[in-house]
Amino acid sequence: MQNNKFWIEKWQTGQIGFHLEEVNPLLIEFWPKLAQGKTVLVPLCGKSKDLVWLAQQGLKVVGVELSEVAIKDFFKENRLTYNRALENGVMYYQAKELSILLVQQDFFEFKQSDFDACYDRAALVAFPANMRVAYSQHLKRRLKPDAIILLVTLDYAYQDQNKLAQSPPFNVCDEEVANYWPSQLSPVFEQSLYELNSKYAAKGYQFFDEKVWLIG
């Protein structure tokens, strides 16, 4: 199981292949238009530039991230300054130039609620199957009943059917998403990364699909 130590070491050693250097084009294309001042939760946010893009849309962004390295890199790389405050053992980093608050905390211990929306590109797929139900339930408790979720998932299989993923990102099939959010019937977008990049065949995948879900 990928515990907190696993992720902290990934950031400390720079093993962050999951990080995108630019704003995710799928976010730009599919993010729903929300009124100015609405709150957006970004679980396991890392140092994603998506946080900046969301804030530039006039939204109040709260990212939850375990790694201090990721948080400080985020501010440094985006040339943002911040105020830092320690409250009840949790460190909060508030950007001065944009409405971005980063909370250094295990997401399962994060208790703030009533968010209007959530953006999840790399959180659900970061958890093994035995943790994803708990994650989805905890996430729902953080959101308003009518909140909107933009979710990105990966669905894949290996050519060797006996092979299972040992580390993130994990595959999440359509049926699993529907179990967490019964009203969600199908993704709004999907693409075959297997067909777009030969590296997936070289790594022994049978298929590798990226899907976007707009929930709520």
Rank of each mutant, 00 (worst) to 15 (best):
V188F: 07
Q104V: 02
E97L: 08
K211S: 11
D114V: 00
Y156V: 10
P43F: 11
V177L: 07
E68I: 05
E21A: 13
G204V: 10
V103H: 10
D209C: 02
Q94P: 05
A95C: 12
N197H: 15
S67R: 12
P169A: 08
R141L: 13
Y158E: 02
F30K: 08
E87S: 12
W7A: 01
I148G: 03
S183R: 13
K199M: 07
Q15W: 00
F18T: 03
Y194G: 12
F75M: 08
Q161R: 15
V172K: 03
G14E: 10
K49C: 05
K60C: 05
Y158C: 03
I8G: 02
Y93F: 15
Y156Q: 09
V188K: 06
Y200M: 06
D146T: 14
S167I: 12
V152A: 09
P145N: 11
L98G: 05
Q12M: 07
V133F: 07
Q12Y: 11
P25C: 08
V42D: 10
Q36D: 09
L66S: 04
T13Q: 15
N179Y: 11
L102P: 02
Q12I: 09
A201E: 15
L139P: 00
Q112Y: 02
K72V: 12
V52H: 07
L80A: 04
D120K: 01
K111S: 14
Q36L: 14
L80R: 05
D114M: 04
Q191S: 11
L101Q: 14
P128D: 02
C118T: 07
L34I: 09
V90L: 04
L51F: 10
D155I: 04
S167V: 15
L41N: 06
A165P: 05
Y156N: 08
L193K: 12
E190H: 10
L86F: 09
R141H: 14
L98A: 07
A123T: 06
L27F: 12
C45E: 07
Q36R: 14
I149M: 09
Q36V: 15
L34K: 08
M131E: 09
K163H: 09
Y194S: 11
L139E: 01
K10G: 01
R141E: 14
A70S: 06
W7K: 01
F189C: 00
L44M: 14
K144G: 03
P32E: 09
Y93M: 06
G89K: 07
E9T: 14
I71H: 07
L66A: 08
S99K: 13
G204A: 07
E77C: 05
K111W: 05
S198E: 15
P32S: 05
Q191P: 00
D106I: 02
S113T: 10
F108M: 03
Q105I: 04
F107V: 04
Q161F: 14
Q105N: 11
E9A: 12
P25D: 08
Y92I: 00
L54E: 06
E29Q: 15
A129C: 01
S113Y: 13
Q56N: 13
P187R: 06
P168A: 01
Q36S: 13
E21F: 03
N24H: 11
L34P: 01
M91T: 14
Y135G: 02
P168W: 00
N130G: 00
K72M: 12
P169F: 00
R79S: 14
Y135R: 01
R141P: 02
